[in-house]
């Protein structure tokens, strides 16, 4: 049974989350424990999204509540300990849309993944550099326009050329992206929504 803070988080009750975090800190509760409760709430939100109870607008609201609470708790020394793994994320070259990518980043962070967010209009070389630097075994590419397909394909090719393709799983997502596009790009999986991206990261990083 989730506790009160996790439930307030899951119910998107922003005022209650803030009040409970504040009261918890004032009462000497370990900030890390509070952070974990918030993460538990995010897990419930993901489940509600999967079952069709929640929609994208709910994920945006959840992300905002979580970000604020997590920042407050981190400022008090809160930590969830080792993350579940590293993911590099970005919107590909030529596309400046960040909404979908940002939601995925927030949901991954909410699920305790360490995400390197490269922003928008990211050229293949920058993806490769980040994968090398972080050692991340998962790369996520986002695109809202069909002009994102070729840069996605070029990035996968660049991973191959850099000798990294064997150790990096690639997921793609965004409005026009389909299974056909995944095949065209040469990605490993299509994340149809933010929660699917979290599930893919979980599947690959648990392996």
């Amino acid at each position: 049974m989730a506790n009160e803070l996790a439930m307030a988080m899951a119910d998107l009750d922003e005022e209650k989350v803030q009040a409970l975090v504040k009261a918890g800190l004032a009462g000497g509760v370990d900030p890390s424990a509070l952070l974990n409760e918030c993460r538990e709430g995010m897990t419930l939100i993901g489940q509600r999204f999967e079952t069709g109870e929640y929609y994208l607008s709910d994920l945006i609201m959840a992300g905002e509540i979580f970000k604020t609470a997590a920042a407050d708790l981190a400022a008090q020394g809160g930590s969830s300990g080792p993350t579940k793994g590293k993911v590099v994320m970005g919107t590909v070259k030529g596309d400046i849309h960040d909404i979908g990518k940002d939601i995925v980043v927030t949901m991954l962070r909410g699920a305790n993944y360490e995400v390197t967010d490269l922003g928008v209009d990211v050229p293949p070389a920058k993806f490769i550099e980040a994968v090398k630097e972080t050692g991340a075994p998962v790369l996520g590419m986002s695109g809202l326009l069909t002009i994102s397909f070729d840069p996605m394909k070029e990035t996968v090719a660049a991973l191959q050329a850099a000798g990294l393709r064997g150790r990096v799983k690639v997921m793609i997502g965004g409005g026009p992206v389909s299974e056909q596009v995944r095949e065209y790009v040469g990605a490993d999986a299509l994340g149809v929504d933010a929660q699917a991206a979290v599930a893919l990261a979980g599947q690959w990083l648990a392996a």
């Binding site: 069909t146 397909f149 026009p176 992206v177 389909s178 056909q180 596009v181 065209y184």
Partner: peptide, 13 residues
Amino acid sequence: IPASLLAAGTPDD
């Protein structure tokens, strides 16, 4: 007719 089909598909698709 989806944009992705027109951009990434084939005439057969």
